[in-house]
Amino acid sequence: MSAVLTLENVSKTIKGKKIINDLSLSVNEGEIFGLLGPNGAGKTTTIRMIVGLMGITKGDIIVSGKSVNKDFEGAVQHIGAIVENPEMYKHLTGYQNLRQYARMHKGITKQKINEVIKLVQLSERIDEKVRTYSLGMRQRLGLAQCLLHDPKLLILDEPTNGLDPAGIREIRDHLRMLTKEKQMSVIVSSHLLSEMEMMCDRIAIIQQGSLTDVQQVRGFVNDDLLDYFIETGSLNDAMDWLQTDWNAVITAQGFTIKAKKEDIPTLLKRLIDSDIAVYSANQIVKTLEDRFLEVTAQKGEIE
């Protein structure tokens, strides 16, 4: 897989304050890439640098082989983006807004505009003023605006901000469809973990302007070692070998351990052989949120 976007040691300093510190990452073709981080971590600044709204203090950003520093027009023509809210000209209709953006790219036909309108399901209301649109409709019009010129890279900053669950689902389905059918790459930023978990293939965690971690979403959640809670009666002597061999944490109703799935039957057999009452054995599912807090907490301690 080739990289559509590469950030090379990017730094951004505003008024002597380092907002982004030596950030490097790359986004592959056809993947949905998440930028995750608490508010003020530098997600939006990073996105603004990619699309050229902000200058890059140090380093470079390469989009489809073109440097944003040296060939801004060449680089940005492969990008479609919504930065923060999709702000449109409210006194124009949806269609007139799209015409505005179509005139700024080469070779966008009326057919193409209509095709995109159909894709985001705005056909019925497209000739009404944007002033009358709901937030969800503006979000969809914003998406239509990004798709007009068939970009290779779609950048959506907080795409689900202020949307209801149906709207969020809609955006998610659109993104899945675009990456599958058009081989587009997508970058989404968010501070909402559950949402990123459902949407993204890979997630980068940004904290205080630095990259903390990049992980596959599945791997991000699942380690080899899983957490289990075993509900038992009184442990008696078994307490000793559980703590030494398995590093178990003993509680009143039983204990928790970290173990591979295959080891659980062996463990249970040994417990039963020791005449200990075993009531249940459950895997503790670690959510992305737990992992996220774990990772960010570690980072916080280091600094």
Binding site: V51, G52, L53, F72, E73, G74, V76, Q77, I79, A81, I82, V83, E84, N85, P86, E87, M88, Y89, K90, Y101, M104, H105, Q145
Partner: peptide
């Protein structure tokens, strides 16, 4: 003030 400057400046135009 309307924020539309962002969508204007991310076009492949100087």
């Amino acid at each position: 003030s309307s924020g539309t400057i962002k969508l204007l400046l991310i076009r492949p135009i100087n």
